[in-house]
Nucleic acid binder design. Structure first.
Lengths: 195, 195
DNA sequence: AATTGTATATCTACCTATAGATAGACAAAA
DNA sequence: TTTTGTCTATCTATAGGTAGATATACAATT
């Protein structure tokens, strides 16, 4: 792996644990075996560095979710709404249980009032593209009645969007609360309510 | 108001905007019209100061919610589950819309891996007492079937707890996402899904 | 083959600003 | 005359960032 990628890895991990302002170039440098001035060789300033981290995180996250249109289960059938949600939940669950860290954008979003604009803008892109993914994936299922009460065509998309926002919000919140409580099972209890 | 309370107010507001590590004694001092050494007169160190902020925030929040047993509507009837949830949502809505800030504990929870233990412990107390409040308030309503599918007595409480965690998580997440998006209406769209 | 040039990646050394905190003077109030 | 609240002055550590030396590798030039 390139040194640049190592730097991005370490920076991402540190932010996901402690937040933007708790991460310094010196710490990142120490963890990657170089000096802080060498970190500045790759990323002239902290804003650039964290912007790159958020962009990479968002790309990887969406790539891991896959194209909403290509979601088919083992029988080759289109996903049901429940299957879409389960797949989506699994992505967040992996971040929390496997990485033992929060979602990068939950952390940055919580600090967003004090971040460089470039960083908070990228954080928002993560949220918006997640909502879009969920809406698209849920739209292409058959059991559309699942999502809400309305059935007028014009309200269906809005209703799915509300549902998508709700799912994203609940998962981000559940990660924060269960991590703070030191009780990761709490995440699953919330996630089960969403299916 | 006492200088001590002014300091707590300013510190709380700053953390809710930018996070723990973006707040300094000097900034707090400037905003309260004193010098940073005078801040240390009231709070020997930052951990003490923020611990006091979180404790006060939690007390005020619970006090504002009121005793779960005393929740009665204008007709003098016990609250329905929907009314309990609406009341709970209103407390978070006030923080976001009126104060124009996130929930203190959403911010601190997101940074919890890098906080002094005293602070993260108090943050967890906020979450746990909120869950307890919600469970108690929902328990004392009549329409218990609302919350989930199980009906065995032993599972009822667990089911209510899951529901409470879910509501808390969704509200905390919704605050973060809508604040980052600069679109506070998103909060209401998520909140409506919870009723 | 030896030499030179250039890009890449790293270092040491340093600068300025700020963070958290302390010591001790001073003034007003109780 | 002790307590309360504030100040000035200062310390040490760290943050973010820059300048400029150095080393290495690879290519082009003679």
């Amino acid at each position: 792996m390139s040194k640049r990628d190592e730097i991005l890895d370490v920076t991402e991990a540190m932010i996901r644990l402690k937040g933007y302002n708790a991460v310094s170039a010196r710490e990142v440098a120490k963890a990657t075996g170089i000096k802080s001035s060498s970190v500045h060789y790759y990323f002239p300033n902290k804003t650039d560095m964290v912007t790159a981290v958020v962009e990479r995180y968002t790309e990887n996250f969406l790539q891991n979710l896959g194209e909403p249109s290509e979601l088919v289960n083992s029988s080759g059938d289109k996903y049901s709404a429940s299957e879409v949600k389960a797949r989506y939940i699994a992505a967040f669950r992996h971040a929390l249980i496997h990485d033992k860290k929060l979602c990068l954008c939950a952390v940055l979003g919580a600090e967003s009032g004090g971040l460089p604009e470039e960083v908070s803008a990228r954080t928002n892109v993560f949220f918006q593209s997640n909502i879009k993914w969920l809406v698209t994936a849920l739209e292409s299922t058959n059991d559309k009645a699942e999502s809400s009460s309305q059935s007028l065509e014009s309200n269906l998309k809005e209703s799915l969007t509300n549902n998508a926002m709700h799912i994203l919000a609940a998962l981000e919140g559940a990660m924060i609360i269960s991590q703070t409580a030191g009780d990761l099972s709490m995440f699953d209890r919330v996630a089960n309510e969403l299916l």
